[in-house]
Amino acid sequence: MGGVLVRPIVLTVLIYLFLKFIVPILPHSAPLPSSLIFLYLMLTTAGIVIFETLSGASKDAFFGPIFRFLTGESGGALSSARYLVLALFPLLVGWQTYGSTASSDAPPAENRTIHPAPPGEYTGLSNPVPKTPENIMYGKGLYASRCSPCHGNFDGKGFAASGFTPPPANFKDPTTIAMLQESYLFWRIKRGGVGLPVEGMPWKSAMPRWELELSDEDIWKVIMGEYDGAGQKPRTWDESE
C-alpha cells in the first residue's frame, strides 16, 4: 500500500526544497518567509487532494491507504508509524497553540518605506546648475565636509554611521540614488529626515535638514558631486516612462 501516496509526497518535498533553497539563489531573488513557504505547501497539498479525488475510483485509491493506516489495518511496520503519527499530531497542535498564544520577545515589526513619495512640489524638478567640472568638484567638497561623516566614501560607512538606525544610505548601491531622480535627492537633502512622511519613520532618521545651512544651489551641487563620486547616474524622465 501507499504507492499512490509516494508521488504526492515526493512532489511536496521537491516543492519545499525548491522554495527553501533554490528560490533564494535565483537572480534578483531573496529567501522566502517561512509563513509564505508554509502557505505554498498548503496550496500544493490542497491541489494534490483535489487532483487525486476527481473521480470516485481515484478518491478511493487516494484515501484508502490513509484510512487503512489510521485504523491500523495496514499492519507490519506501519503499525509503529501509526502510533508515532497519532502521538505527534496532538503534540504538534499543542506546540503551535503555545507558539501563537505566548508573548513574543520580538519588538514591534517596522514596515519602513525606504523611498517614500516626495511632496508634489519636489516632483520632476531638474537640476538648474550647469554640470561643469568646477561645480561637481564644489559639490564633492561640500559632500566631504557635510555628508561624509555618515555616508562615508559614498558607501554609507562614515565614521558617524554606526549609532544610527536606519543606517545612512549607500550611494554606490544600485538600489539607492541610481534609481532616483535628482529632484528626489533635492527633497531628501533639503528637508532631511524630519521631512519624511509617516511611512518613512521620520522620527528615526538622523538626516539633517540642510535647507537651514545650505542654499538650494549648493544642494544641487552636492547632488552632482554625489552621483559623480558614487559612479552613478540619476534616473531621468525618459528612462522612467
Binding site: M1, G2, G3, L5, V6, I9, V10, T12, V13, Y16, F69, S74, G75, G76, A77, L78, A81, L84, V85, L88, L92
Partner: peptide, 15 residues
C-alpha cells in the same frame, strides 16, 4: 507490493 517503510519515513520527513 510488500508494505515498505520508505514512504512513511518520507511522510514523517515531510511533517
Amino acid at each position: 507490493r510488500r508494505p515498505g517503510t520508505r514512504w512513511w519515513v518520507g511522510a514523517v520527513g515531510l511533517v
